[in-house]
Structures are given as structure tokens and as C-alpha cells.
Amino acid sequence: MADRAGDDDKTRRVVFVTVGTTSFDALVKAVDSPTVKQELFTEGYTHLLIQMGRGSYVPTKSEGGSSLAVDYFTFSSSIADHLNSASLVISHAGSGSIFETLRLGKPLIVTVNEDLMDNHQSELAEELADQKHLYCARPQTLHQTVADMDLNSLVPYSPGDATPVTKLINRFLGFPDD
């Protein structure tokens, strides 16, 4: 049994899902769907860890074996450890979650919460997706994004260059591009 646990550690590929401090049941339901879980398993991921925030939807736990092992929690004092151990991060469109994940160089799928009014966070996610730093999805398209993603095509984000973010903020505020 000890040998098997060692083998599991070498082949463990974790997908960490975070909704931040909000409620984003549509994202939790999407990643808990058989379609998305099967796509992740097909892509070689072994574990799905969901930070579900204030949501009311409770994912289905499973032990893995011939499918994805699924676990969840509501909040953590720090998600840094979860981000560090992740092979893939699926996140809400909060700028803190986005930039913390990109700073760590982790592949990222940002899922936009379309239920939020005046959601400028989606503009940030879409701009960073256009620059190929991450993938952007909606809950209903998440399975297709996972199926189609090519993580080798992502461009590392350089945290020292604030120009793209500055341009996005200026555009949002109505200032002309330089």
C-alpha cells in the first residue's frame, strides 16, 4: 500500500477550482458535472479540489480510482498551498485570483459569472485570454474549453509589465488608447 501511495504522488495531477469569497454555484455545478469531470480525467487530471465559497450547491465527493477524485471545502485562510500544488486552476474572474495564479505560472481557466451586474471582471479575463495568458469560459462552455485547451499555447504572464492592465483600465474608463 505504501508503494501505491508513492506512485499516486508522482502521477497526482490536481485541478483546483476557486470561487473566492462569493457564491458561484454555476461554476461549482459545471465542474461537478459528469461531462467536465470526464474531460478533465481524459486530459490526465486525477484530482478535483473545489473551493465553493458561500455557495449552496454541494459537489459530489468521490475517491477516484477509474475516475476523478473529488473533494471540496468552503473557505481557507490561504489558497496559496492549493494553487501551488495545482496542475490546472479553474477560477472565478476575480482579479486577485487571476493574478495570484498567473504569478505562480499555473495554467488557468477563468470562468465568468454572468449573473453579476456590470461585470468588469469579465473584461479583464477576456483581455488576458486575448493575450493568451489564460483561457476564458462561461459555466456552460467550460466542458468545451477543457476539451479544446492546449496548455502549451499559453504565454507566461510577466507581472512586471502593467501596460496591458493599464490599457484595459483606461479603455474601461473611456480614455483613448496611446
Rank of each mutant, 00 (worst) to 15 (best):
V58D: 12
L168C: 13
R171T: 13
L154N: 07
P107E: 11
S76V: 15
K10Y: 15
G44Q: 05
K29Y: 11
E100W: 03
N152T: 01
R4M: 01
S97P: 00
R138E: 03
V146K: 01
A26Y: 00
K132W: 15
S158V: 14
S77M: 09
E126K: 10
A147F: 00
V28E: 15
E63P: 05
T101K: 02
T141Y: 12
I109L: 14
G65L: 11
S33F: 08
S153T: 10
T101E: 15
S77I: 08
Y57C: 02
V28A: 05
L108Y: 03
Y135A: 05
G55H: 03
Y45G: 03
F16Q: 04
S76R: 05
E126S: 13
N152D: 10
P59L: 09
V70P: 07
F99Y: 07
L68H: 10
F75V: 13
V19F: 08
V70Q: 13
M1V: 04
N84C: 01
S122T: 15
Y57P: 04
H120D: 12
P59F: 04
T22C: 05
A162W: 10
V28W: 10
T163E: 04
Q140I: 01
E126C: 11
G64N: 06
L151T: 03
G174S: 10
L128H: 00
S76I: 08
D150Q: 13
L40W: 08
Y57D: 09
V89M: 10
A162F: 09
I50F: 12
R4E: 14
G105C: 12
V19W: 10
E114D: 14
V146L: 06
P107Q: 05
T163Y: 04
S95I: 03
L108D: 02
E126N: 07
H82P: 11
D3S: 01
A86I: 07
C136K: 10
M1K: 14
L142H: 04
D9C: 07
M52Q: 12
E123D: 11
L168H: 02
N152K: 13
L83V: 05
L134D: 03
D7A: 02
V58T: 14
L104K: 15
P139W: 00
F172M: 10
G96F: 01
G96C: 00
V15I: 14
M149Y: 00
I90S: 07
S85W: 02
K167C: 14
G105N: 08
L83E: 15
S33Q: 06
T42F: 07
P156V: 14
